[in-house]
Amino acid sequence: MIKTWELDPNFKEEIMNERGGEHLTACFQCSTCTLGCPIIDYVPTYNPRKIIQMSLLGMRKEVLSNPDLWVCLICQTCTARCPQDVRISDLLGAIRRIADKEAEAGKIKIESSRPIFDKAFQHQLAKYGRLYDMGLAKEYYPKREGSFFKGMMAMMNDYKDFGMRMFKKGKMGPKAMFPEKVKDLAVMKKIFEEMGEK
């Protein structure tokens, strides 16, 4: 039972004010996005159309804490096909960013490690200007697992074969142990300060 008066009618504006969320209200609930989405074959509850409808109604809490938000591949299939140019891929990104802020503020709990990974990734960019795989892994795994030790174990588990394989092919040599840095690091810092998530 959805009681509309208990919902947040401003949620749609909140999303539309977020970059990428501008086209939310154009949606006419046609299902194109959902039916073409590759994820529906793996996550039966996954339904971008429904996330949109819930957002339109103002079901802020349900939407932001929906773990399905985090399985989107950003593959753009939905965006390419949406007849109303809703740009679902970007839109879900906008909703994820709102969710992330809420989680940071301790208001909701996100049941996905994806925000941790994305942030760890961005931290590498802010720091080095380029992706530093080791740095990313070192930040991501411990945060995901909740402790440094568990994190390292998980990382070992994921990487032991893979790392070896890469190493054998000369793709994970000693060079990869150190970050490749952009010379003009100051500008990276500025970019993230001005545009990045606060």
Partner: peptide
């Protein structure tokens, strides 16, 4: 059936169409 179907997939000699079964709330 209420679905704007975006794709038709040839599969084993026939054409597969995915749609939303709104009654069951499932694909």
């Amino acid at each position: 059936i209420r679905s704007r179907v975006p794709e038709v997939i040839p599969e084993r000699g026939s054409l597969k169409v995915k749609y939303e079964d709104l009654k069951k709330g499932a694909i």
